[in-house]
Amino acid sequence: MAEAPLVEAAGLAVRYGVGADAVTAVAGVDLAIARGEVLGLVGESGCGKSTLGRAILRLVPVHGGRVRFDGTDITDLPERALRPLRPRMQIVFQDPFAALNPRKTVGQAVGDPLHAVLGLDRTMAEMKVAALLARVGLLPEHAERLPHEFSGGQRQRIGIARALALDPDFIVCDEPVSALDVSVRAQVLNLLADIRAERGLAMLFISHDLSVVEHIADRVAVMYLGRIVESGPARDLFAGPRHPYTRALVASVPRIGATDDTAVPIEGDPPSPRSVPAGCRFRSRCPRALPCCAAAEPPLAVDGAGRLLACFNP
């Protein structure tokens, strides 16, 4: 990667709550996404994936570290100064029901940012809305309808059209297909892949479903309890996971002919983010934990295979 990354996070931390009740959802994450690259972010529910995605877009307050977008440090930019950059980074949400204002028509949901933010006149905005709806597989007359008249898959298409409306360079896809029926999942996924290829979009593609990420991501980062534990090119990482957590995740995906004898399925729930184990945070569930794992937290470092890995005993 000679070119500077489009999106870059360094030591990013996000806490919720104050004092003794504070929960660290994201505990120092480094990542970089190049132009046109799709980074898959996988991990269990509650590991901080969505929070990380929202922190990168400055939709939740950042408590530590830096976020850079296209060379600009946006970590401490006041909202007013950030506003001109916002259209270039958009988000598609998981829940297609919560993602749309129930009292606004589809045309308003997709078109309002066009004249409120970009200053397009009404006719221009309407034409663009029609084109966007067509692109995501909806009809121009759908612009007149309210969200409750649509299925989950259709609403997700509306959400995608809204994210595309401002011609972004980067989209955070926060579990965009997890809430959808299996039958429409592939359609929406293919739509995202096509649009990404057409527009050369960079994406942070968040999912707990490895098979979904494998389908669309160039690189994958694995997150556990607020930290990245392993990251690397998607194909390599899925073919040869190195971190015990990644191995267990990969082994849990049913696959014909695949065998990894060394992978032991992990059990139980992740510890509460309120009481993260000292040392390696995966230690309490790790089948390969050593005494040294309790002493210090393994840093995320390049291993022999050119992959980033945070483990003392891979």
Binding site: R103, P113, G159, R162
Partner: peptide, 26 residues
């Protein structure tokens, strides 16, 4: 905190517009 409001913030809409047009009717 609802996602349709986050989407408007992510689009760069002004606070007053979000308050009056997006949140208040709901």
């Amino acid at each position: 905190e609802r996602e349709f409001v986050l989407a408007c913030r992510a689009a760069g809409m002004g606070d007053l517009r979000i308050m009056l047009r997006e949140i208040l009717p709901n």
